[in-house]
Nucleic acid binder design. Structure first.
Lengths: 207, 207
DNA sequence: GCAAAAACATTCCCACGAGTATGTTTCTAC
DNA sequence: GTAGAAACATACTCGTGGGAATGTTTTTGC
């Protein structure tokens, strides 16, 4: 795999993420993805066997962005609530920073590819879904630690994990990139979001 | 509009919701929707001008399910935290009870119909999105009331509204209908979900 | 510098599905 | 019961987009 080839692939993946976000998985055409790059279909099909494979690549990339942001935080020796808050904040940042990729994930996932996919493709998709589950498991682990330590009140670790991911990933549904927005602005959103999720809404809990 | 006509339309809408949920908005074909009913395209196109109109009808129906469940709760004279919890619980129930409709809403919304839609269709879609916003506003109103009364701690009403809707609507992503599941089981899910969102995760807030 | 392979562009094919046109049956009004 | 309209079924058109086949240019290994 030459250097130039990898770079070209990355460009295609990035362009695809943008097209997928703007037009959805089905309406986004391979011609359009190529056109964004000032190229034609030939280039895309030279690097990817099918449109599905492009989607898989975008999916994987999106998950890697998440893992890269959160994995380092697991080693911190801080109480579970704080760790959870920092993980959620980091995740919020990734959502905003890699919006096209994260939105793409939400467009279909298991809906996309129904029957029409080959057995090999289903295998890849299953791996990707497992990858997403592994990511959610990172949060569940911290939830369990907090429950054991008495610093978190978690009736159901599974359900709490779902709620956290739902609230965090919901960000891509309403967040819109604004050109005059600074990193500090996004940080405020991410921190507020994390605090709301961990701290809840009831008054008197903490500041 | 005859009685038989309305019933037929409702059947089509319901079948469409199931197809949309299973295969996505694009992959779900009009032929398939008709086939679920044991009919053909002719029946569908006799009642709906286009596939988009079917989607609109499903969307509207989904929103009406939500409003019908939550609107009555607004008149209750109870503290904001309790009202919010009950609203969230009711919403959770609707999500599970009308799963195909609610999942359909998440499939595209603004992504679906890009440029290819007529001006009239865009108008309808804008109305539907406004309808969804109105629904979210019900929650924001209660949040504001709680903030004013001091029973809720809401740094940003807008953000809190997003978080609540995100966590609640995320339910349709992971909830799966199980035949041996009773209403009590679903109620437990809905209540736990609402408690988590309103109460948060930090220990010591309340039971 | 020269084969050969990679990295594209161009052209073409064709399956698929939305929408239409037209036929056929069933209900309704009188 | 008999027009006529509503409620379908059947058969067809046609644009579109995924993917393959083939041609052209650029890079790389020797």
């Amino acid at each position: 795999m030459s250097r130039r080839s990898i770079e070209s692939q990355q460009q295609i993946i990035h362009a695809a993420a943008v097209c997928f976000m703007q037009n959805g998985l089905e309406k986004a055409t391979v011609d359009e993805i190529a056109h964004v790059l000032g190229s034609t279909k030939g280039r895309v099909y030279h690097h990817f066997a099918s449109k599905n494979e492009i989607y898989f690549a975008v999916y994987r990339q999106a998950m890697e962005y998440c893992f890269d942001a959160v994995l380092p935080l697991l080693d911190l020796e801080i109480p579970a609530p704080e760790k959870l808050t920092r993980m959620a904040t980091a995740h919020g940042h990734v959502m905003m920073d890699t919006l096209p990729f994260q939105r793409t994930i939400r467009l279909g996932v298991d809906v996309y590819l129904r029957g029409s996919a080959t057995e090999a493709e289903r295998k890849v998709l299953a791996d990707l879904i497992a990858m997403r589950n592994d990511y959610e498991a990172l949060y569940r682990a911290v939830l369990q630690q907090g429950q054991d330590a008495g610093t978190l009140s978690v009736p159901s670790v599974a359900l709490a994990g779902r709620v956290i991911m739902g609230a965090l990933n919901g960000l891509v549904d309403w967040y819109r990139v604004r050109p005059d927005q600074t990193r500090a602005d996004r940080d405020k959103i991410a921190v507020s979001l994390a605090d709301l999720i961990v701290g809840g809404l009831r008054a008197g809990a903490d500041a």
